[in-house]
Amino acid sequence: MTQIQLTDTQAVVLSAACARDDGAVFPVTAKLKGGAVGNVCKSLLKLGLIEEIPATDLNTVWRYDEERGPITLRATPLAQTTLGITEAETTTKAAETATAPVQRRKGTKQEALIEMLRAPGGATIEEIATALEWAAHTVRGAMAGPLKKKLGLEVTSEKVEGRGRVYTLK
């Protein structure tokens, strides 16, 4: 199973939840501004490290569901494993999350970028920027961020005489 990388904020929120007997995420003790708590919780939900349960205390409500009523969050066994609190145990939800293929929307610029990089001969920054109507720095950022870090794709480059640096996906 792949190891889950957590940001410092995610680790603090998750550690506090795992330290509680009931595993409750709320109240969040970390000093976070604006919508940061919501963003951290959404990312932890997506990773399967926390889960939604019916809230019994109205001071710990995460959201309201029309069918289930007030909902709160608690740490999952995967959270304790990720933080090294317990030995590795594979839960069904965690296993599904780890092995589920990434779903991409059709007709997006990201999809067009991937197609250009997979095309025979690859593509240069200038070609991609022109086709997608992006600035060169946006193309480089898209390859480094979403493609490499989020989707785990390997972007390679080589200098081609008469064309410059050409990028391809392996």
Rank of each mutant, 00 (worst) to 15 (best):
L113Q: 01
E111L: 13
I85M: 04
K31C: 08
A30Q: 00
T56H: 12
R63Q: 14
Q103M: 08
A136K: 15
A24S: 15
N39L: 12
V102T: 14
K42N: 15
E89K: 08
R140S: 15
A98L: 13
T86M: 06
A79T: 04
A142R: 12
L45A: 05
A112D: 12
A142E: 14
P70Y: 04
T76P: 01
A75L: 03
D65Q: 06
Q80A: 04
A136G: 08
E127R: 06
R68C: 03
A95P: 02
A98E: 04
A79N: 00
A94N: 03
E127Y: 06
E133P: 01
G69N: 02
M143G: 07
T82W: 00
R140W: 12
P120Q: 11
G141E: 12
F26D: 08
V37Y: 01
L32S: 08
T82G: 04
G34V: 04
L113S: 01
V61A: 01
W62A: 02
I125F: 08
V40G: 01
P101Y: 07
A36E: 15
D57S: 11
V37M: 06
A142S: 15
Q110I: 14
G69Q: 09
Q103A: 09
E52D: 02
T86P: 04
T90V: 12
E51F: 03
K31G: 09
A19P: 00
R20E: 09
I128C: 10
A36P: 03
I125D: 10
C18H: 00
R140D: 12
E89P: 01
Y64K: 08
V37C: 07
A94I: 03
I53V: 15
D57F: 02
L83M: 00
W62G: 06
D65R: 02
T108F: 09
G34W: 05
P70A: 08
V37H: 07
D22Q: 06
T60E: 11
L58N: 13
R20S: 06
G122H: 09
D65G: 02
A55E: 09
A112C: 02
S43H: 07
R63N: 10
F26Y: 15
G38V: 08
E66H: 12
E111D: 14
E111C: 07
A94D: 07
E66Q: 14
I125P: 05
L32M: 09
L132N: 10
P77E: 05
V61P: 07
P120H: 09
D21V: 04
E133T: 13
L73C: 07
T97P: 01
A100Q: 14
E66M: 10
A112R: 15
D21N: 06
M143D: 03
L32Q: 00
G141A: 14
P27E: 09
A131Q: 14
E96G: 14
L47T: 05
T86D: 06
N59D: 09
E115N: 13
A112W: 02
G107V: 06
P54C: 02
V37K: 05
A75G: 04
W134Y: 15
G145S: 15
E51R: 01
A79K: 02
T92W: 07
A75R: 02
L45T: 03
G48Y: 04
N39S: 11
T72Y: 05
Q80Y: 01
V102G: 07
A94S: 14
R140F: 12
T81K: 00
A75H: 00
L47R: 01
R105V: 01
P77F: 03
F26Q: 04
T76D: 06
I114N: 00
